[in-house]
């Protein structure tokens, strides 16, 4: 009986050692945890990145800018997102219904809005939730912004219609994940901040 107990104990110990080795191996290749300093750095970068996105959108909608410049800014904005399938939620002033568009489609839509003039301004940019590590090893956070949308339509007689204006607040998902990246000429694992889906937070009409 005692021998059997010893054998089982040895097997359990061996299995535990193998598992531990596997865990060590996996964490050796990839540093899966951000330090406090690194997290702080990504917080700063997240705010700048969201601010940049707001700037790109402002340029994309501005009728005074050339199509070339608008399209360049569409590309810059797209590069900030995790995937092409990330979406933007769009609210309506007239109905409670919300629409969801893929980000590229949304950017092209606002680029071509049929107004005489359009201005979209983001303000109040802040991190509304801190980065937290998800079960998939990525860090997730949320940034919040409010945007004012102002547009003027030119009537058939050439007269400007009353300015349309509304304010919407939105939440932007933030993801920091480990990816392969170039460090000079070498490839290595590094943490990369990306934007995720954008959802309507609250809406109010001015």
């Amino acid at each position: 009986m005692k021998n059997w107990f010893c054998i089982i104990l040895m097997i359990v110990s061996l299995v535990s050692m193998v598992n531990a080795q596997e865990l060590d191996d996996s964490s050796e290749g990839e540093d899966l945890r951000l330090t406090v300093e690194e997290l702080d750095a990504f917080k700063q970068q997240a705010l700048r990145t969201v601010e940049d996105l707001g700037t790109y959108i402002k340029i994309i909608v501005d009728k005074a800018n050339s199509l070339e410049r608008k399209n360049n800014n569409v590309q810059l904005a797209m590069a900030l997102f995790a995937t092409d399938s990330n979406t933007v939620e769009i609210s309506s002033l007239k109905t409670p219904q919300k629409y969801v568009k893929r980000i590229r489609k949304y950017l092209i839509a606002v680029r071509d809005l049929p107004y005489q003039s359009v201005d979209i301004t983001w303000y109040g940019i802040h991190l509304s939730s801190e980065f937290k590590k998800g079960p998939d090893g990525k860090y997730y956070g949320t940034a919040s912004i409010c945007q004012t949308f102002e547009a003027t339509l030119l009537g058939a007689d050439g007269a400007k219609w009353p300015k349309k204006k509304d304010t919407t607040c939105k939440n932007i998902q933030l993801v920091v994940e480990q990816l392969n990246c170039l460090d000079g000429l070498k490839e290595k694992k590094c943490w990369v901040l990306k934007l995720g889906d954008i959802k309507v937070d609250e809406q109010r009409l001015n």
Binding site: A41, Q45, E51, D52
Partner: peptide
């Protein structure tokens, strides 16, 4: 570089893309 740490946003950024972004930001 933020907080003395390297931070990538979006991924590797080329110099041409970065130059374009500076024209906007």
């Amino acid at each position: 570089v933020n907080n003395n740490k390297e931070t990538l946003a979006g991924g590797n950024q080329s110099i041409s893309s970065y130059a374009e972004s500076l024209c906007s930001t």
